[in-house]
Simulated assay, not measured.
Amino acid sequence: MLRLAESLDAVSRGIASVIRWFALAMVLIQFGIVVGRYVFGVNSIAVQEGVLYLHAALFMLGAGYTLLMDKHVRVDIFYARADAATRRRIDIFGHLFLLIPSMLVLLYWSWPSVRNSWAILEGPISVGGIEAVFLMKSLIPAFCVLLILQSLSCLARSFVEARRT
């Protein structure tokens, strides 16, 4: 079970090693946009949308890694004061009854929109923008799948820990 968890973790780490550079790219492109607009009077909708695409990819594809590193948003009302066994039970409950089902529902309901977007190769958000909205919409199922995989890894680790105690 731990080998499976490590394999799933490797997926999240691999994706994170690529998308972490998106943050730097976003900063540099945004800086270029500001300099271009206010110093040279040049503007590009496509370049502006590029920042949007990078931002969306960074957060949607990085969610699994965030879960792996335990840096996601957590409601600490009970969790912060709980012992290790109670925390493990809360985590198992959260993965089994909240995270995985919600990702499955989101995947199910978003799939027709993504499929239709690919069928027509949906064009830009704005006139002159990037002609690839279908790629951005594809981040939704990718987000769901990556979170489900990382959730399964967390569950496997929690079950192994539960058996040890």
Score class of each variant (00 low, 15 high):
139 L>Q: 06
44 S>E: 04
117 S>M: 04
34 V>T: 06
36 G>M: 09
89 R>L: 14
84 A>L: 13
39 V>H: 01
88 R>L: 01
138 S>T: 07
56 A>S: 15
53 Y>E: 01
125 I>T: 11
81 R>F: 11
33 I>E: 01
19 I>V: 15
109 W>V: 14
146 L>N: 05
160 V>H: 08
131 E>N: 14
7 S>H: 09
53 Y>G: 01
23 A>D: 00
88 R>I: 03
112 P>C: 08
9 D>S: 14
91 D>Y: 00
44 S>N: 11
152 L>G: 03
70 D>S: 14
2 L>K: 07
164 R>K: 11
45 I>D: 07
116 N>M: 13
33 I>D: 00
90 I>E: 07
155 L>E: 03
23 A>L: 08
15 I>E: 12
155 L>Y: 03
81 R>T: 10
78 F>G: 06
131 E>W: 07
146 L>K: 01
163 R>T: 06
24 L>T: 10
19 I>Q: 06
113 S>H: 10
63 A>Y: 10
141 P>H: 05
142 A>F: 12
21 W>V: 04
79 Y>V: 02
51 V>I: 11
97 F>H: 02
6 E>T: 09
94 G>C: 04
36 G>T: 06
150 Q>W: 09
27 V>K: 00
29 I>R: 02
136 M>S: 11
145 V>S: 03
32 G>W: 03
40 F>R: 12
158 S>N: 11
148 I>M: 08
116 N>Q: 15
39 V>Y: 06
61 L>S: 08
144 C>E: 01
107 L>E: 09
145 V>E: 08
120 I>Y: 03
15 I>D: 07
113 S>L: 14
155 L>G: 02
77 I>T: 10
25 A>I: 07
54 L>D: 08
147 L>S: 09
62 G>R: 11
46 A>S: 09
54 L>F: 11
34 V>M: 07
91 D>I: 00
25 A>S: 08
119 A>Y: 00
114 V>H: 07
14 G>H: 09
70 D>R: 15
63 A>P: 03
78 F>W: 09
104 L>E: 10
61 L>E: 09
2 L>V: 02
136 M>Q: 12
26 M>S: 06
52 L>R: 14
121 L>V: 05
34 V>L: 11
1 M>Q: 05
86 T>I: 13
98 L>R: 11
90 I>W: 02
139 L>G: 02
151 S>L: 02
42 V>Q: 13
116 N>S: 13
99 L>K: 02
34 V>D: 00
69 M>N: 04
124 P>L: 04
66 T>A: 14
96 L>R: 09
102 S>Y: 08
101 P>D: 12
94 G>T: 05
138 S>Y: 04
79 Y>P: 02
107 L>C: 12
133 V>T: 15
163 R>Y: 07
52 L>G: 10
11 V>P: 05
59 F>A: 10
132 A>E: 04
128 G>H: 10
102 S>V: 13
43 N>E: 14
9 D>M: 07
119 A>Q: 10
124 P>K: 06
6 E>S: 14
91 D>W: 00
146 L>C: 04
93 F>V: 06
71 K>R: 15
108 Y>D: 05
115 R>N: 08
19 I>G: 01
61 L>P: 06
123 G>N: 12
132 A>G: 15
123 G>S: 14
129 G>W: 10
95 H>Q: 02
120 I>S: 07
159 F>D: 01
119 A>K: 01
26 M>I: 07
104 L>T: 14
35 V>E: 06
139 L>T: 01
